[in-house]
Each structure stands twice: as C-alpha cells, then as structure tokens.
Amino acid sequence: MTQDKLFSLIQYPLPHHLISRLSGLVADSRAAWFKDPFIKWFIRRYGVDMSQAQEPDPTAYNCFNDFFTRALRDDARPIGDGMVSPADGFLSQFGDVEHGTLIQAKGQRYSVTSLLGGDTRRANPFRQGSFATVYLSPKDYHRVHMPVTGTLREMTYVPGRLFSVNLATADQVPRLFARNERLVCIFDTEFGPLAMVLVGAMIVAAIETVWAGQITPRSKHIQTTRFDKPITLAKGAEMGRFKLGSTVILCFGQNVDFRNDLGIDDSPVSMGQTLGDLSR
C-alpha cells in the first residue's frame, strides 16, 4: 500500500468538522506568545514570501487567520488578458467538460451536477463547457479573485465531508470535490455563465465572500441564496477567501481556448495570470 493511499484511508473515520472547527479556534487566537511564533514557524516551514504582502511584519497580524488571508501589495499580481487564474496555486486539471463530467485526477472523474449541488437545472449550462481546477498550497496567497467580470446570480452552500485536498488525495479519494463541503457561486458574464466553486478541506475553518462575509459552516442542508439586486465584480476583483487553504474550481458554459504552455499537477499559476481566452 502506498503512502498516499494510507493517508487517504486514515481520513475516512476522522471527525473532519470537529478537527476543522478546533483548528479555526487556534487560528483565531490573539495571544502574542502563541500566534507570533506560530506565524514565524509557518513562514519558515512553507517558504512564504512576505515581501509581496502589504504588511510584511509577521507580528503585525492580530491572529494566524489574518496572516493567512493577508493582502498583497497593489503591484504584486498584475491582471492579464483573457480569462485569468482566480488564485495562486497549482493548476491541477483543466480542459473540456465531457458528457457532463470533469477530470479529478488520472482515472478519477466526477459529474458537474454533483459538484454544483445535485441540481440539474444549475448544472445543465456547464455540461458541454470547460473547467479549471486550482489547488492552493499552504504558502500561497489565499484570496480568490474573479477570472472575468461577472454579476452574481446565486450562491449555494453544499454540506459535505472535509477530506484533505491536495494532489495526493485527488488521486486516491473518488469524487473528492463533489463530496467535500463547498460554496457554489453562479455568475452571469459577457461570455455566458460561470460557476466558481470554493471547496472546503480538512482544517479549513471557514470560507468567506466579499458580499456575505463568512459562509461556512451554515447547515447540514443545501442552502441557496438568489440575488435580485446586481452584485457585479470586475475581473481581478476579490470575491472570497479561505481561512486555511483548499481548491477553486471554475466551470464555464462554453469551451475555453486554454494556453498551449499550461501543464497539470505541477504547473504553478499566479492570481491574474492568463489561462486562456473566451469568445462571445
């Protein structure tokens, strides 16, 4: 049995939500004797580049969560042309949605319907479109931004497990992204519909959006909020953030002309980096 397989099996019986909520309490601690050494250790352990942060002093943050969701300098992430990456991280998969299914990893697929909360009405516009999956590692900038300009139509909280999300578990846990707790945000854009899915994971204490604040945890039931008053966010504008890291999945209602030089699994991307082009 491989180490990755053993790691994934160990997670099944764990109390995912309890572990994550306790981690959230620790990450919110404002005790300087705890949070300052912890933040400095985290920077050393994961090689975090603090020179790009608006506040480079690790001790200036009120708690670990404030450090983890830190803002960057205004010039740190220029916004490219076309459709851009919503976050820093690794482009783990991308391509066409084939017969309503997305690639999770080699030999692993899951349906767009299950990803978007089991509603066929919500999923149908994306069944023949394109997708991109960006995994945020611990060292990355953890705010999520718009890949194109969009107007928010609805937001759906989907309860679920909180398996650890990384390249190894994506290989080992079937339907990982459709099983974990997640937030599905549907936008209307000049290129058609866009779904942005923020996937929770082990020790992710919460997901936040700029229009509703902290979202998770909310309920054990799927909850959908529809927006009658327009909430329009420009390309490159912040739309949400993770309190500890996870994954963002983009689904488009049409095919994306992805750049030819993009790779998968080990291909680092930066927020604002051009991933491809969309046609009207």
Rank of each mutant, 00 (worst) to 15 (best):
F94G: 04
S111H: 13
P125Q: 05
E154N: 11
S114T: 15
V158T: 10
R109Q: 15
G129A: 04
Y110M: 04
A132Q: 09
R109I: 10
L115N: 13
G129C: 07
V112Q: 11
L162P: 11
Q104N: 12
A123F: 01
S137K: 05
V112A: 13
F131C: 04
F131Y: 15
V97A: 02
G95C: 01
A105H: 06
S164N: 08
Q108C: 08
Q128P: 02
G160T: 09
T151W: 10
T151E: 15
Q93V: 08
L115A: 09
S137Y: 03
H99S: 15
S137Q: 10
P138T: 10
R161M: 14
S111G: 14
G95M: 03
D140K: 02
L136S: 12
P138D: 10
G160A: 03
T101S: 07
E154Y: 04
Y135M: 11
V148R: 00
L162Y: 09
T133Q: 02
G150A: 08
Q128G: 13
A132F: 05
G129W: 08
Q93D: 02
R127E: 15
G118D: 10
V97K: 03
T113F: 00
T149G: 11
V148S: 06
N124H: 13
P125Y: 01
T120I: 08
F94R: 07
T149I: 08
Y135D: 13
G100M: 01
G150E: 10
Y135G: 09
L102K: 03
T149W: 10
S137C: 12
D140Q: 05
Y135W: 05
V144I: 13
L102F: 08
Y141Q: 03
D140W: 12
R127K: 14
V97H: 00
F163S: 01
F94C: 15
G107F: 00
P125V: 02
D140A: 01
G117L: 05
G129F: 06
F131P: 05
L102T: 02
F94L: 14
G129I: 04
R127L: 09
V148D: 06
Y157I: 14
S137D: 08
Y110A: 00
E98R: 12
F131Q: 04
A132R: 04
R161G: 02
I103G: 09
Q108W: 06
R109K: 12
V97M: 07
Q93E: 14
H99V: 10
M146T: 10
L102Q: 00
V112H: 00
G95K: 00
D140C: 00
V158M: 04
P159Q: 13
V134W: 03
M155H: 09
S130C: 12
T156H: 03
G100S: 06
Q108R: 15
G100P: 01
N124P: 02
Q128L: 11
V148C: 06
Y135H: 07
V134L: 05
Y157W: 13
E98Y: 02
H145Q: 11
L102S: 02
A123K: 00
G160Q: 09
D96P: 11
P125N: 00
P125T: 04
T149Y: 06
P125W: 03
K106A: 12
P125R: 03
